[in-house]
């Protein structure tokens, strides 16, 4: 398999604290890769480094075969075009309707005719499971679950190869969260996406992640399939997966078979 993201010896310092102290991992094409860890363990910061929103202090980050450190503006734009991002709170542009939000990246990066862009945007709105009428709404008029779906539609606007999700199911009720998990898997299968997601949701971890990386003490203390990581002999991992909530999520997973 071909690596989509390769991170080697990544180190990041804020002031006197090392947020990341030597992290190595690889994300393969087509997999759903989860990043977990306690609050403040640097999950979102790690994602920001893969998105080139934050420069690492040391180490190498390769996304889609390009070294990020020292990449020029044109390469960055090209790579960003091939990545979609769903931010934790959606980050939809509040002055634009859902449809205009989805059209926006296409208008910036392609030379499609207007009606084609609109039709493609409508397709995305349908693909993420939103009602066609939602296309005309403004972000402020959407519920939390719809907002996440609309933001996902924008993330998919340019048919990315690589999709980043920052806590995609936070703030959703269990039913919507499960539906969102299913949607993510369906889209991965249909569009051949590689997905990297940061989460606190143990249910979606068990249900959709192919591999998990556990961050603690500024390092990746365990990387592998969920069951393997959950069995790792690290105090933070044990607390995380074998606390009351962790056990419940695992049992749910078994019930679903």
């Amino acid at each position: 398999m071909e690596p989509v993201i390769e991170v080697r010896n990544l180190r990041l310092r804020f002031g006197d604290t090392w947020i990341h102290d030597g992290i190595d991992y690889t994300v393969e094409r087509g997999e759903i890769f989860a990043i977990v860890g306690g609050s403040g363990s640097g999950k979102t910061t790690l994602m920001r480094q893969m998105l080139m929103l934050q420069d690492p202090t040391e180490g190498s980050v390769k996304v889609l075969g390009h070294e990020m450190a020292g990449a020029d503006e044109r390469d960055l734009t090209e790579i960003r075009r091939r990545c979609g991002v769903l931010f934790q709170h959606g980050a939809l542009f509040s002055g634009l309707t859902v449809l205009e939000n989805v059209v926006f990246p296409m208008r910036e990066h392609t030379h499609l005719a207007d009606d084609d862009m609109v039709e493609l945007a409508r397709l995305r709105v349908g693909m993420v499971g939103l009602d066609p009428a939602a296309a005309w709404k403004y972000p402020a008029q959407l519920s939390g679950g719809m907002l996440k779906r609309a933001a996902l539609a924008r993330a998919l606007a340019l048919d990315p190869e690589l999709l980043f999700l920052d806590e995609p199911t936070s703030g959703l009720d269990p039913v919507s969260a499960a539906a969102f998990d299913d949607l993510v898997v369906r889209l991965r299968d249909a569009m051949g996406l590689t997905i990297v997601f940061v989460t606190h949701d143990l249910d979606s971890l068990w249900r959709i992640a192919d591999r998990v990386m556990f961050l603690a003490r500024a390092k990746a203390v365990a990387v592998g399939p969920v069951a393997e990581v959950a069995a790792a002999d690290e105090p933070e991992v044990r607390e995380y997966f074998h606390g009351p909530r962790g056990r419940m999520a695992k049992e749910n997973q078994w019930k679903q078979g």
Binding site: R122, L123, G126, P132
Partner: peptide, 14 residues
């Protein structure tokens, strides 16, 4: 993907 797109393209826009 093709089947999904074909199906969605037939839904009348609001």
């Amino acid at each position: 993907l093709y089947r999904q797109v074909a199906e969605l393209a037939e839904i009348a826009p609001a």
